[in-house]
Write a protein that binds this DNA or RNA. Structure first.
Lengths: 239, 239
DNA sequence: ACCGCTTGATGATATAGATCAAAGCCGTCG
DNA sequence: CGACGGCTTTGATCTATATCATCAAGCGGT
């Protein structure tokens, strides 16, 4: 189904996929390196071209993914095709952690994406034997829930300008945490993606960018945006 | 701060607060009764009058609550007073599980509320010693996250009629799971609460109820609503 | 029975954002 | 090179929902 290209694989704690291991560890700092060899968890490296699906809503949830490269959009569709993007995943993020029989949303690659793929069953067993990892994962899920609640406020009670500003500020901060402060923050997703994330139309997003540009609040450059007036941006995105 | 009335308390596994224990167990069915006495967790019984606050956003998060009676609204406020209700809690639900230093939202009683109050520190330690309980809690949080994602779709992409219908269907189902199928589903929260949950105004909620009433889709009675045309309701609330 | 207060329903009007339409801007492919 | 197709921007309307204003009903207190 998915046009993914799987290459390389390793067992957690048995070298080979150093990158997977490092990423895995970064989430689960409670586990020391010497603890890992106790268990075998098959990790596959999966690569995805732009627009390729990692998985789709209602498919059997076979696997858990840990992103290592690229940006993934997570979304739900209504029967008539209306789309709500519920989040963008960046390297380090986990996907498909719900541990339900089927995925609750679809995930596809915005740009070129690499991820570590862990079989759900195997991962669940590993988890049973590693309460520290479960604790870390619970904290992660709890954080996701808190972000989801912020997004509810945004979708329910903020106007277009506030929505766009809040999105830009949050995205800029996440990007900075990942790559260090950059002057220009890239926006790899399309305007349609941003619109579907913010509960707006593409036209409203475009106009709002333009207005913020004319205001000298931001500067739109070909490969992203620059925040010129952080004060005003923070004010629009406040609380 | 809170006008709560604390009465009675018990230690988990040392009789007294049978109700707390039963509720606690219902969440954590993986723990057998004979496992409980191993640990002491102080549980206080807290009662709240209608409109009383259980806790407020940004307060130090001292405690975890497990609702035993009544309905609680959970909400976030923007600096200018706009409110988004992020959920309604019913008996059995946990509040303040985020385990952050401060509460991420406010919670107050819609009607008369009773809850079991567990000190956060103590609960966290208990959790460390009980991986099964942590697992249950992780499943619970994961379910909450999934509901939050559904709510994002509702807020971002559904119109007023769909929002109201979806709310009624979901509320009816939750109520039924708790009390068994009832002809009339009570709506203990105000129209303003419903509006702030659905990202609408009180007037739009009121008009939408009226229209669904004129349609014979629902029947509005003094103490709640009756669904007359489940087909149409399900269609409006679909996916 | 009357008052003051709150909540909900409904009508009139305003507006933010949606929808519809067209035109610019690249990248790419023949 | 030029034509094509996907995005994005911009402009002109339209409309769903917000806003504002009444009004009626319920309710507790006197």
């Amino acid at each position: 189904m998915s046009p993914a290209q799987l290459n390389g694989s390793c067992r957690l704690g048995k070298e080979v996929c150093i990158d997977c291991k490092v990423r895995f560890m970064s989430i689960c700092s409670a586990l020391e390196a010497h603890e890992l060899p106790e268990f075998d968890v098959l990790i596959q490296r999966a690569n995805f071209a732009p627009r390729a699906a990692l998985f789709a809503q209602d498919q059997p949830a076979d696997a858990v993914y840990n992103l290592t490269e690229g940006v993934v959009r997570l979304y739900k569709l209504l029967p008539d095709g209306r789309r709500q993007i519920i989040g963008f995943a960046l390297p380090g993020d986990f996907l498909g952690l719900a541990m339900a029989e089927r995925y609750g949303f679809s995930a596809d690659a915005v740009d070129t994406v690499s991820a570590c793929r862990l079989a759900r069953e195997e991962f669940a067993h590993y988890l049973d034997a590693k309460p520290h990892l479960l604790r870390r994962l619970h904290e992660y899920t709890t954080h996701e829930l808190s972000l989801a609640q912020d997004q509810m406020v945004l979708l329910g009670r903020r106007n277009a300008e506030e929505k766009v500003a809040t999105f830009l500020v949050n995205w800029r901060d996440r990007w900075a945490r990942l790559t260090g402060k950059a002057v220009t923050v890239p926006l790899p997703m399309s305007r349609q993606d941003i619109a579907d994330f913010l509960g707006l139309t593409i036209e409203t997003v475009s106009r709002t960018f333009s207005r913020l540009g004319k205001d000298k609040t931001i500067l739109i450059v070909p490969d992203g945006i620059r925040v010129l007036d952080p004060q005003r941006m923070e004010r629009l995105a406040a609380a």
